[in-house]
């Protein structure tokens, strides 16, 4: 992954997102100053952070809730699927769909945050 010819690491080359040169020029977006562009950037960063923290806390909540429920309702664990108790099924397979659901929700919402930023920036 690192380099050119056999054994030689290449010089590091900064690679940036593909850009379209020569499209209409606009003021450089920055996060400083009092102009609306800066405000929008800050609010985008803040809303993305809030979203990420909420998703992380949701998953942490599930992680805490599962053992607590089994501890508080001991009868639950007497139930079993075949020979395997419910607690083993939940921990061994049940948490993965939750993970994927939270991740999918995050991917959608974060893109929505970005398109909201785009429409705000375009209006400005």
């Amino acid at each position: 992954m690192t380099g050119p010819g056999p054994g030689a690491p290449p010089p590091r080359v900064r690679v940036t997102a593909p850009r379209r040169d020569g499209v209409a020029t606009r003021p450089t977006p920055t996060a400083t100053g009092a102009d609306p562009a800066a405000l929008y950037i800050r609010s985008l960063i803040r809303s993305q952070l809030r979203l990420a923290v909420v998703c992380a806390l949701a998953f942490a909540g599930v992680l805490v809730a599962v053992p607590l429920v089994f501890a508080l309702v001991p009868g639950l664990d007497a139930a079993s699927v075949g020979v395997v108790p419910v607690s083993w099924i939940v921990l061994g397979a049940g948490l993965f769909p939750v993970l994927i659901a939270i991740a999918a929700l995050y991917v959608r919402t974060s893109s929505r945050n970005e398109s909201r930023y785009r429409s705000l920036a375009d209006d400005a």
């Binding site: 209409a24 020029t25 606009r26 996060a31 985008l44």
Partner: peptide, 17 residues
Amino acid sequence: LARLHLPEHALELGAEA
């Protein structure tokens, strides 16, 4: 930070940016 969090299109607005 702006570069990290802005969607790519916003950065593509101009080569100048």
